[in-house]
């Protein structure tokens, strides 16, 4: 069990929806705001880092003196990246299909306006791209909910932290499934709290 461990779940717009001091050390008065400061500042790093990797568990993203911040990013942003990929591959498929179907036919080659045709194809591609990008940009705003589970710790037990995050994520998903829970609001369930503390005792 780590001596200092502060666990926090950060929702959209950087609103903390759950906070818990899960360390074994005696809670100090000024520790609470210090931990919040460190975790809040670490969000900047997470913001940059989350887009560069597909891993959910980002270990030791930030540090302050001997305190280390590890973060588990839920799959919200990955969903978005997937959509972009789909859009892109779709575009390639369509454009190649159009190209082959038009250019592949030998009968078209003797037409005097063949260059115009290719122009049109390119034009179609561009319009398609713009339409699709608009489409998916829209869906980006609709689906962009990624929650960050952040842990401030002083131990080096990476495996334990990772499994802690995974189990808490499962618990969080159960909270999300609750029809009475409004996503993005504070998690007040005492059951969740006790479970998280038990997990912290087990893994950290």
């Amino acid at each position: 069990m780590a001596s200092t461990a502060c666990f926090i779940i950060v929702s959209r717009n950087d609103i903390p929806i759950y906070e818990a001091e899960v360390g074994s050390a005696v809670k100090k008065e000024e520790a609470a705001h210090q931990h919040q400061f460190i975790l809040h500042a670490a969000l900047d790093i997470v913001q940059d880092l989350a887009w560069t990797t597909s891993a959910m568990f980002l270990k030791s993203v930030d540090r302050f003196n001997d305190l280390v911040v590890s973060v588990y990013v839920t799959a919200g942003h990955i969903l978005f990246m997937l959509q972009i990929k789909i859009a892109y591959s779709l575009l390639i498929c369509i454009s190649s299909a159009v190209n082959t179907s038009l250019v592949g036919k030998g009968s078209w080659e003797f037409l005097p306006g063949i260059r115009d045709w290719t122009c049109i194809i390119i034009f179609i591609n561009i319009t398609l791209a713009s339409i699709l990008s608009e489409l998916f940009l829209f869906s980006l705003t609709a689906h962009f909910i990624h929650t960050r589970l952040m842990l401030l710790h002083d131990s080096r037990n990476d495996d334990g932290i990772k499994s802690f995050f995974q189990e808490v994520h499962e618990l969080y998903i159960k909270i999300l499934l609750n029809p009475l829970y409004l996503p993005g609001s504070r998690v007040t369930s005492s059951h969740f709290d006790t479970k998280v503390r038990a997990l912290a005792r087990k893994y950290l």
Partner: peptide, 18 residues
């Protein structure tokens, strides 16, 4: 420096100012 970096890191800026 955090403020000057791109993208600006406002939270780090605030923390270090404190």
């Amino acid at each position: 420096c955090y403020l000057m970096s791109s993208p600006p890191m406002f939270r780090k800026y605030g923390f270090h100012l404190v």
